[in-house]
């Protein structure tokens, strides 16, 4: 099947229901997208599909043919993505960092959609888990982009 990932078309030969996460990691060799739970609980595997934050560990590859898939590796190609990354750096959000690819993409999707989110908007969109507990810094970083 053909998948549009990070602006390029990739021919991938996998079982149709292979989760997008493993296509990205194993077929394309892009390891910034993380496996955390495999059941859409933690969000470490978040990618953008037509701009929507999506948990790729439960997304069958054949369900996203023809859609635009973007991973953390190209997040800085968009203005919002670039500002989110700078906010993450500026706020020193990351600790172990394992969940942060997903967090950055979730924030990018939110802020692309709603430039000035309310607390409720942030609660609704920023649901990825972080075991290091960087939640307050994540919120501060999202805020700093919306207020910039």
């Amino acid at each position: 099947m053909q998948l549009n990932i990070n602006g390029a078309t990739h021919d991938v030969d996998v079982e149709p229901d292979t989760p997008l996460l493993w296509v990205i990691r194993e077929e394309l060799g892009l390891t910034g997208t993380k496996y955390g739970c495999g059941i859409a609980q933690c969000g470490a595997c978040t990618v953008l599909i037509d701009g929507v934050a999506t948990r790729s560990c439960v997304t069958p590859a054949d369900s996203v043919e023809g859609l635009e898939i973007r991973t953390i590796e190209t997040v800085e190609d968009t203005e919002i993505g670039r500002r989110v990354v700078e906010a993450w750096v500026e706020n020193e959000v990351a600790q172990c960092g394992y969940c942060q690819s997903g967090q950055v993409l979730a924030a990018t999707a939110l802020l692309s959609d709603i430039p000035n989110p309310t607390d409720e908007d942030i609660d609704g969109a920023m649901t990825n888990l972080c075991r290091c507990g960087t939640y307050n810094k994540i919120r501060a970083a999202v805020r700093s982009v919306s207020e910039a």
Partner: peptide
């Protein structure tokens, strides 16, 4: 002082054992 690893960890460039090839 700012942490040295924040940019790599904000852009998916930090690798872990699970990423070893």
């Amino acid at each position: 002082l700012p942490r040295m690893d924040v940019r790599a960890k904000s852009t998916g460039r930090q690798t872990y054992a699970i990423d070893v090839e």
